[in-house]
Amino acid sequence: MKQYRAFCFDLDGTVYRGKEAIPAAIKFIRTLREKQLDYFFVTNNSSKTPSQIKEALLRFGVEASEKQIYSSAFVTAKYVKEHFGQAKVFVIGQDGIRYALGQHNIHIVEENPDVVVMGIDRMITYQKLAKACLAVQNGATLIGTNEDIRVPTEAGFQPGNGSFVKLVAQVCNVEPIFLGKPSPAILEMIRQGHGYQKSEMVMIGDNYDTDILCGIRFGCDTVHVNTGAVSTEKVKEKELQPTYCVQDLSEFEL
């Protein structure tokens, strides 16, 4: 592996799988810390606050500050603030997206919104989806924190946020705006915030359609690990290839 200054990791399927750590990834991150190399965690999971993600990582033996954690919730809140200003927002989602919107002083409402923001909500109901559909049909802009159709767990795949956003979009016959990976916005935030060149950054992940395409669209090197959502066999069928394909991060020496 060439010399990078910033290692950007996906979380679920890359650093851990559900509640189980991926040992090679944990060891690799610890080595980065020992060598005083910069690393960041880039997740499409909008359900947790940076503090909650930090605590979850610590349980896997990974030390990180909140400044090293970039979620689709944060990039979505930033986008809403920049493009919709003082708009009223109806939210489907958990702690992470609500915290991020609050940090950006965005006005959250239950009725007559200008924007509908959808993040993963493990307490999703028909009523919430119906409310979102009616708001969008009345002119609200539909924004999803991410478009993941499914998420890997130790028990198998479960529905991701994208499956619910696309349900609302299909009912309303609109195209939603997605801010998480594979949009390069989240990596651009890291680049601007820390002054890296794209050539100094590398995106590491298990999901070709989110992690790897995010890096490719951003213009940095990418590493696909065969530990999560998409197998190496499937990745090798893609037209645009990652810079590296490995079984796990034990194959790399720093």
Rank of each mutant, 00 (worst) to 15 (best):
M1N: 08
A6R: 10
L11D: 00
V15Y: 07
E20S: 13
E20K: 15
P23D: 15
A24L: 11
A24H: 06
A25K: 08
R30K: 15
E34D: 14
K35R: 11
D38I: 02
Y39I: 06
V42C: 06
N44W: 00
S47G: 01
S47A: 15
T49C: 11
K54F: 06
A56D: 05
F60D: 12
G61R: 12
A64M: 07
K67G: 06
I69Y: 00
F74I: 15
T76D: 03
K78D: 10
Y79P: 02
Y79R: 08
V80C: 06
E82K: 13
H83W: 02
H83S: 07
A87W: 04
A87I: 01
V89E: 07
V89R: 00
G96W: 05
I97H: 01
A100M: 07
A100S: 13
L101T: 10
G102N: 12
N105G: 06
N105A: 13
H107P: 05
I108D: 04
V109L: 04
D114P: 07
D114M: 04
V116R: 01
V117G: 03
V117P: 01
M118F: 03
G119K: 02
Q127A: 15
A130I: 14
A130M: 14
K131R: 14
C133M: 12
V136D: 11
T141K: 13
L142H: 01
G144P: 11
E147A: 13
D148N: 08
I149N: 02
I149T: 09
R150W: 04
R150G: 03
E154V: 12
A155N: 14
A155L: 15
G156Q: 12
F157T: 08
N161F: 04
V165E: 06
V165L: 04
K166G: 01
A169L: 07
G180L: 02
G180E: 01
P184D: 09
E188C: 03
M189N: 07
G193W: 11
G193E: 14
H194A: 09
H194S: 08
Y196W: 04
S199M: 02
M201T: 10
G205W: 02
G205H: 03
N207F: 05
G215Y: 04
C220Q: 08
H224V: 05
T227M: 07
A229N: 10
V230H: 13
S231G: 02
E233C: 00
V246N: 06
Q247P: 00
Q247I: 12
D248S: 07
L249I: 06
E251T: 08
F252M: 11
L254P: 01
